[in-house]
Nucleic acid binder design. Structure first.
Lengths: 146, 146
DNA sequence: GATTAGTCCTTAACACATTAATTATTGCGA
DNA sequence: TCGCAATAATTAATGTGTTAAGGACTAATC
């Protein structure tokens, strides 16, 4: 009596499908980032800071979808590159505030046109309706807020 | 005159949405894998080998969505654990063939029930129709075959 | 059959992901 | 105020992702 529980074929596996879709999407983006000298995660951090302004690292980690230990290194790297500042919260010295510098903003703006062109390309390739639908479906799978 | 090219809000960014969806999906799966002693990628390799049988590493890497250097390390690790075998192709000694062992198969079967329960859970939470639709949309974004 | 190019795989180097342990600071209660 | 739990951040350890370079073998060309 072998159990023979039917695992889904790897070809229709949701985790693998998500992985492969992300590979496909990141391809052109990685090309763009190559000549910025920063990584995909560093770009995400800058984007979030530019959109929402200075914030504490906990909020930053959530918005950029990064774990704390990763953010520690990334913030330090971006600081060394002069793209962000790190300051202690005077009220609670455990907390750290991060903000994008003028140089960081300049880096984003220098590539904003290409980045939005790439994003628009994917939107167009799926069609606006299916694209929005996809984003909604993906949001349903995201981890619940805590 | 600031340029003000409209980058999509990070909240509606496709790469970030894919990342967060994957986090959500991997949560329960990671829990399951914790007591197997193997990683998510190692599990993927075993799954592919169990589904398709022995194959060369190039094919294996494609089916498991892994880059070659990663697969080199992962196959070596799985070999040490006694979960796969690695043999040279006698016809072309550059090539390597990988196969799952009985022990590897046993590991999969020991967790197949829980794995398929998790997969079914996601399918149910979205509804079968939207679930299939999601897989189709994701497939459209995957890298083109070469 | 020696040179050359191409293919398969490995190694190296650096950055990130994940989990766990550690440090620094704050807040609370005996 | 002393200790102790809770929170914010860092460090450590292991494994993977990515790019580039290297090594081994094969195939093509002359």
């Amino acid at each position: 009596m072998t159990q023979q529980t039917s695992l889904p074929s790897t070809a229709r596996s949701l985790p693998i499908a998500l992985l492969r879709a992300r590979e496909g999407v990141m391809g052109p983006i990685r090309e763009m980032l190559t000549d910025t000298g920063i990584t995909e995660q560093q770009w995400r951090v800058l984007r979030v800071l530019e959109e929402f302004g200075e914030m504490d690292t906990k909020t930053l980690a959530q918005r950029a979808s990064l774990l704390f230990p990763s953010l520690t290194r990334i913030a330090a790297t971006l600081n060394e590159k002069g793209l962000v500042t790190q300051t202690r919260d005077t009220g609670d010295r455990r907390r750290q505030l991060v903000a994008v510098t003028a140089e960081g903003r300049a880096l984003i703006e220098a590539h904003a046109a290409e980045a939005s062109r790439i994003a628009a390309g994917f939107r167009e390739s799926l069609g606006a309706e299916r694209y929005e639908e996809l984003l909604d479906l993906l949001a349903l799978l995201a981890p619940k807020e805590r």
